[in-house]
Amino acid sequence: MTVLGLHHVGHIVRDMRQAVERYGTLGFSLPPAAYPVLPPAPGAPAEPFGVANTHAYFPGDFVELVTLAGSAATGAMPDDARPIPLRVPDDRLPGIVAAIRNTTANLTACLDRFEGVHILMFDTDDVGREAVRLEEQGVEHGGVHAVQRPVETEHGTRMEPVRFLELDGATPGLVAEGRVGLAENGGSDHGPHPNGAVGLVECVLCVADAELPQAEERYARYLGLPARGDGGTRVFGLRDADITLVGASALGELLPGERPAALPGFAAYTVATRDLGATERLLRGRGVPLGRTARGEIFVPAAAALGVAVVFRQAS
């Protein structure tokens, strides 16, 4: 198995300042949001452009908060936001600007559906090998790309290479539920988190009941393994995490009180925590509303977590 688990999920938000405050209340530690700065044309002054983000890092994976930057921004920039200058030669600038605008358009389309998780990247130890496997399975993708991302650690910021690919649907880089792909090199030693979170262990995709078999077949090709389960739920068990597919009529059994914002859509993600009892006490002490899953875990409802339910599970 070369798809090992979750690399990250991406929570697209309208207002980064509000999102950072909300995640802080939920007990996550995040570095200041990074805002790319780029001249939109040769000779023009640099300005925030494209997509801004910050991360709740765990040792092997992370949760990303994403928002639109610059003229496309829909919310306030945090006071401690970090400008990240992008240095691009003038002859390459138009191509880079066009690529960033394409990414921005995809994220805008996601945000137009609902505020919540629209990005799911699987962790792999060899994205090139996975690209070949996907092609053999008839899964279209945009090829392997190599970038560098800033990673915050207790010793400062370092640039880390990342290779990734994104799956194509009706639109390049976008399938029905959002951006889905594979990447190498997730996680960081930034932290710890007051809520005790130590890793990303599940993502839940909700689909129309009639579309569950097709979604199962599609993810079986993405992941190269079969699902288990019957009825309204299917689970793909990776080495380090699960991908759960659930029919819309069964979502309330999995997460009581939850309803899908749109179909298909990512309805929840789960983080493992060192001490679930301590996590629950912290969240209740901060006035965070909590539900309880069918498995007895605690979760923050989507209405209190900007469009996605956040589940906390006792680490094994």
Rank of each mutant, 00 (worst) to 15 (best):
E202T: 07
V310R: 02
F299T: 07
T74L: 15
G43R: 12
T2D: 11
Q314M: 08
L282D: 02
G265Q: 05
A72D: 15
D275L: 04
V235E: 10
S316D: 15
D15T: 12
V139M: 08
G169E: 09
V311F: 04
V271N: 00
A131T: 06
V127N: 00
V20E: 13
G24T: 09
R17Q: 14
A248I: 06
Y35V: 07
A56H: 04
G173T: 03
R149E: 05
C203L: 02
R179V: 14
L38Q: 07
V147M: 12
E280S: 08
E297G: 05
E115P: 04
I119N: 10
A109L: 12
R239M: 12
R17H: 12
G257H: 04
G291R: 12
L65K: 03
G186E: 04
P32W: 12
V51G: 00
D61H: 11
L282I: 08
D230P: 01
G142R: 07
A170F: 03
V175Y: 00
V97L: 08
V300S: 09
M159H: 14
G186N: 09
V300E: 10
H155G: 15
M121F: 10
D61Q: 10
R228H: 13
E47A: 15
V66M: 13
A227D: 08
A210C: 09
R234W: 09
G285A: 06
D112Y: 06
P150M: 03
A305Y: 05
D79P: 00
A170L: 12
L111W: 00
A227C: 07
M159N: 13
T124D: 04
R286A: 15
F236W: 14
E160F: 02
A304R: 04
L255W: 03
F266P: 01
E184A: 10
E152S: 13
P89W: 11
